[in-house]
Design a binder for these strands. Structure first.
Lengths: 223, 223
DNA sequence: GAAAGTCTTTAACTAAAGGTAAACAATGGA
DNA sequence: TCCATTGTTTACCTTTAGTTAAAGACTTTC
C-alpha cells in the first residue's frame, strides 16, 4: 500500500470494503490535477461521479442568477464527495471549484456501484454520509435564518481557530472569501471584524487575526 | 389490500419491496394519532424511526435558542420520513409537530433494516430519498442567502397556488405560519403582502388571496 | 523600480428588515 | 350576548446590511 493512497484506504465509505476490493477500486480511479480556480464540475450538469481529494482543496459553491456566490463547504485533503447525480441522475445543485492546486481521484457511478452492490453493509454507510451532509446543511440554514452576519462570522473564525492550534489565525484568505461563506459583502465583513476589535474580542493586523477573548467570540456566535 | 394502506404500498422506498414483504412490514408498524400541535419527536432526542403520515400533516420545525422557530417543510398525507437518527444514531436536528390531527405509522430502525437488508437495491433507494431532501435543503439555503423576504414569500405563495388549482388561495394559514416558513416576522409578511397588492400582483381580503398577476409574482420570486 | 492590479479599510448614504405598540377585526367560549 | 383571545393591520423607530466611492497598502508584472 503506497503512502499517498492512505487517504483513500481510510475514506468515509470505502474504508469498509475488504482490502483486496479497495485496491482494485483504487486501480480503476481516474486521476486529475486542477489549477487554482479551475472547475471540476458545474452547477446544472448531470455528473454522476465520486471523488477523493488527494491534495489541495475543492470548494462546493452555489451560484445565484445575479452572479453572487455562496460557499457551502470545502472538501479538504483526504475527504471524499459523492455527487448528487450519483443517486438521482439529476443536475448538480452547485459547482466544484479548486481553491488551490488540487489533485483528485474520480470514479464513475457504475464503477463504484459494481463494488458496493456486493457489500450491502458498506452500501448502507453511504446513508450515514448523506445524513452527515444533511446535518451540515441544517446548520447552515439555522445560521442564515437565526443569526446575523456577526454570528455567522464568529462561527467561521472559531472554525479556523480550531483547525490551527494557536489562537492566531493566519490571514491567507481575503475578505471576499469570508463574505462568500457568510452570505455577506466584503465591506460588511470588514466592518464586523473591526467591531469585534473595538469590543476587545479580536486583534487584527494585515497578516493575522488574534483571538483576544475566546469566550466573547463563542458568545457572539450565539447559543 | 385495504384502501387506507395505499399510501404505504406506494411510498417512496417501501413500494420497491415485494408485496408479501410489504404486507408483513405493514403489520409490524405501530400506529399513533396526534392532536394538532402535538409533538411526535423533539429536537435533540435520538429517535431512530421511520414514519408514514396516513392522514393529516406533520411539520419539520427547527427551534432556535431564542425561541424563534423555522419551518423547513411539511410531511403531508401519504409521505414518509426517515429520521436522521436512523442513519447515524445522533440527536435529531429538528422537531416533528402535528399541523392538524394526524395519523402516523411508525417503525423502529431495526424492523425496517430487517427487511431492507434482504434487498440491497431497495436499500439503495434510500440514498435517492436522502438526496431529494438534500436538494430541498439546498433550495432553502439558496433562498435565504440570495433572496430577500419578498422573494421567499412569492415562492411560497406560488407553491400554495400550484397545490390548489384556482388562482385564489384560501387563507387557512396565519401570517405567523407564513413568517415561520420564510424566516421573518408576521408584521414583515403583512407589509410585503400589501406591497404586492399595491403593485397589482395580489388582491388580499381577510379570507383569501387572489393572484392578479402571476407573471409578476414569478418575477418577484427571482431567477 | 514603476505601473497596474488586487485587496483592505473607511465613510457616507440607502435599503431592508426587525421591534414595539396600538387599533382593529374575527373567533370561540362562557 | 359579551368577553377574552387570537390574528391582522398600520405607524413609527431602530438595527442591520448592502451600495458606492475613494484612499491606502500590498503584489505582481513588465
Amino acid at each position: 500500500m503506497r503512502e499517498q493512497d492512505n487517504h483513500f484506504h481510510q475514506s468515509e465509505v470505502f474504508s469498509y470494503l475488504p482490502e483486496a476490493e479497495r485496491v482494485s477500486l483504487l486501480n480503476e480511479a481516474s486521476h486529475k490535477i486542477l489549477k487554482k480556480g479551475q472547475y471540476l464540475s458545474h452547477q446544472g450538469d448531470v455528473w454522476p461521479k465520486v471523488i477523493l481529494v488527494v491534495s489541495g482543496q475543492l470548494r462546493w459553491v452555489m451560484l445565484a442568477a445575479s452572479g453572487k456566490e455562496h460557499l457551502l463547504f470545502n472538501i479538504d485533503e483526504g475527504q471524499s464527495f459523492w455527487a448528487h447525480s450519483v443517486f438521482d441522475d439529476e443536475p448538480m445543485p452547485a459547482s466544484l471549484c479548486a481553491g488551490k492546486k488540487t489533485e483528485v481521484l474520480i470514479w464513475d457511478r457504475k464503477t463504484v456501484l459494481k463494488y458496493l452492490r456486493k457489500y450491502p453493509d458498506v452500501m448502507w454507510k453511504t446513508t450515514r454520509m448523506l445524513t452527515r451532509i444533511m446535518r451540515h446543511a441544517r446548520e447552515i440554514i439555522y445560521s442564515l435564518a437565526f443569526q446575523p452576519v456577526a454570528g455567522r462570522l464568529a462561527a467561521l473564525l472559531l472554525d479556523q481557530y480550531t483547525d490551527s492550534n494557536s489562537d492566531q489565525i493566519e490571514r491567507d484568505f481575503t475578505l471576499n472569501d469570508l463574505a462568500v461563506r457568510v452570505a455577506a459583502t466584503p465591506e460588511v465583513v470588514c466592518r464586523v471584524l473591526y467591531k469585534f476589535q473595538e469590543d476587545g474580542i479580536l486583534e487584527i493586523t494585515r497578516a493575522s487575526i488574534n483571538i483576544q477573548d475566546l469566550e466573547a467570540l463563542e458568545n457572539a456566535k450565539g447559543e
